[in-house]
């Protein structure tokens, strides 16, 4: 049974601590990014930055803490598919709401 442990030899304690460090830095960064007004770039820039940091953190947790990086294609697929389906739900719900009011879509 030793053959299927090779995948775990990729991670060791310093690496775990490194990922942990990245996550902590991400948390602090997201906190302070929120105190800077970025609305002058475009509306919602703050949220975008916060979400980018959150996605980065999530990727590190999934890839290394949850060992997706060394997992089978099917597990990659199920992880990606769930976010794809979330995107379907968000996009197809919002396409209704954003085309309702006034503006170029006004009826």
């Amino acid at each position: 049974m030793s053959d299927n442990h090779d995948e775990h030899q990729h991670m060791n304690i310093p690496k775990y601590l490194g990922i942990f460090g990245i996550l902590v830095v991400g948390t602090i960064a997201t906190y302070f990014a929120a105190t800077i007004d970025m609305d002058w770039i475009f509306p919602g820039a703050n949220t975008l930055v916060a979400l980018i940091i959150a996605f980065t953190k999530m990727s590190f947790v999934m890839l290394f803490f949850m060992h997706v990086y060394w997992s089978s294609k099917l597990i990659w697929l199920s992880a990606i598919a769930s976010f794809f389906w979330l995107a379907i739900m968000f996009a197809f719900t919002m396409q209704d709401y954003v085309t309702r009011g006034t503006g170029i879509f006004s009826v």
């Binding site: 389906w85 379907i88 396409q95 209704d96 709401y97 085309t99 879509f105």
Partner: peptide
């Protein structure tokens, strides 16, 4: 099947553009 649910809502007040897509 996940992309068509809005056809249950054509007359519910959903936007016409969403209706077109669905």
């Amino acid at each position: 099947g996940f992309l068509v649910w809005g056809h249950h809502m054509f007359v519910s007040g959903q936007s016409i553009y969403a209706g077109l897509v669905f």
